[in-house]
Amino acid sequence: MIRSEILKEIAPIIRDHLVVCNIGLPSQELHMIDDQPTNFYMLGTMGLSSSIGFGVALAQDKPVISIDGDGSVLTNLGTLPTIANNATGNYTLLIIDNGSYGSTGDQPTYAGQKTSLTDVARACGCDNVIEVQDKDLGPVLQSAIDSDEMTIIVCKCDSGNIKLPVITLDPVVIRHRFMEAVAS
């Protein structure tokens, strides 16, 4: 499965929850598949999906899911120790690990080679790290959201992209409706 197929499959699971979504094609795909005010789309700032989502989770009690990418986690590896050492049960980090920088044309990342983000997350002190194959993600994600413990999911999948338009929503609108959803 490629990322867009995964997002289609998990859309019903995440649609009522606060979601922070990675820059580029992941956000564009989620926006096309199931746009929700509870989705915070990153339009820039590669690497910070996990940090932004974690900040939301620390500041309030609702469940928060960060959808991140292998390349973006690699660029902000410092996020994993911070998350591990300040764990909060309402947070789930879903790393869609397609082994490539998908949005920029599927250039290979080191996560698709010798580096295991699962092992890295564990070494950083994250307690619940689950590596899962794309087709098995749904139930794993559902139970991570339902559980009181913070979970890091590394979802291994194929690289590959579909053609779709950029997000033209104004960033302030994205932020405003997300904050209204947080407060509701």
């Binding site: 922070v20 915070f40 700032t45 690497g47 910070l48 996990s50 940090s51 932004i52 989502g53 974690f54 900040g55 939301v56 989770a57 620390l58 500041a59 309030q60 902000n76 410092g78 996020t79 120790p81 911070t82 932020r175 997300f178 904050m179 947080v182 407060a183």
Partner: peptide, 18 residues
């Protein structure tokens, strides 16, 4: 935080979280 851009991401999230 381990790097200041990471910290600004945390702050952005905390702000949106109220």
């Amino acid at each position: 935080s381990n790097k200041e851009d990471e910290g600004m991401g945390l702050c952005a999230g905390a702000f949106m979280g109220g």
